[in-house]
């Protein structure tokens, strides 16, 4: 059954219903495969409330290089991070984005990335407002005797109110920068790999958010 006026299938026509069911099934088929490792909050309900005080709810969505931009975008992001390639299957990794709401109004995002640390993976998250300013910093996982020094509130506070502009001139390869990023102190000098890894993780997080979220919303930083 087709609408004669515009040639489009009429709502609830046979083709419309079949098309909708197939689309739904294809969408389910396209869910992220469990093989690729992404970075998710362990307890989203509790963590979101803690990382974004004042929020009343959140929605979880996924994005990946494979879905948007592919290899050229991946190379662009890697270039923005100093050219060092990612270690494992970066095209397939489904990044988890938590969109934060206060009532019906979106007030920000929480996003995390995995980063190579000295003795294992570092899982770090930032809460961002709609302009891309860091409102909270959280390390979910880090290995080593010095882990607590990095997970301390004092260390995390140094990242608050920073944004991509502050990290623009931070070189993730040499670990050198200027301004507020250069002023961030290492609480564990014996763990330089983890410290510079964390700075790279935050910059990577902000760059990914810029490419996948803020630029799509027309608010590139």
């Amino acid at each position: 059954m087709t609408s004669a006026a515009n040639g489009k299938p009429a709502p609830f026509s046979g083709r419309f219903v079949i098309g909708t069911v197939l689309l739904l099934l294809l969408h389910l088929e396209a869910l992220p495969a469990p093989a690729a490792v992404n970075c998710e909050l362990n307890y989203p309900s509790r963590d979101v409330a803690r990382l974004f005080p004042g929020s009343t709810g959140f929605k979880t969505s996924y994005f990946s290089f494979g879905q948007r931009g592919g290899a050229p975008l991946l190379r662009k992001v890697e270039a923005r991070l100093g050219g060092a390639p990612a270690l494992y299957a970066p095209l397939d990794v489904p990044y988890t984005l938590y969109e934060i709401y206060q009532g019906d109004k979106k007030i920000g995002y929480i996003h995390g990335v995995n980063q190579k640390g000295q003795f294992g993976v570092i899982e770090s998250f930032v809460s961002l407002d709609l302009k891309g300013t860091i409102k909270a910093f959280y390390i979910q996982r880090i290995a080593g005797q010095w882990a607590r020094k990095f997970t301390s509130p004092q260390f995390g506070r140094q990242f608050l109110e920073l944004g991509l502009k502050d990290f623009q001139r931070y070189d993730t390869v040499s670990g050198k920068g200027t301004g507020k990023v250069a002023a961030i102190g290492n609480p564990a000098p014996e763990a330089a790999t983890d410290f510079y890894g964390l700075l790279r993780a935050v910059k990577k997080n902000l760059v990914l958010m810029d490419e996948f979220v803020y630029s799509a919303e027309g608010g590139r930083q």
Binding site: V37, Q118, F119, A143, Q145
Partner: peptide, 23 residues
């Protein structure tokens, strides 16, 4: 493979045995 992917390890990297802090 998945343990290495999860921990972002490549040959030559270190891992730390938790609780015992043995690299």
């Amino acid at each position: 493979y998945e343990a290495a992917e999860l921990e972002q390890r490549v040959v030559g990297d270190m891992i730390m045995v938790p609780e015992k802090n043995v690299p």
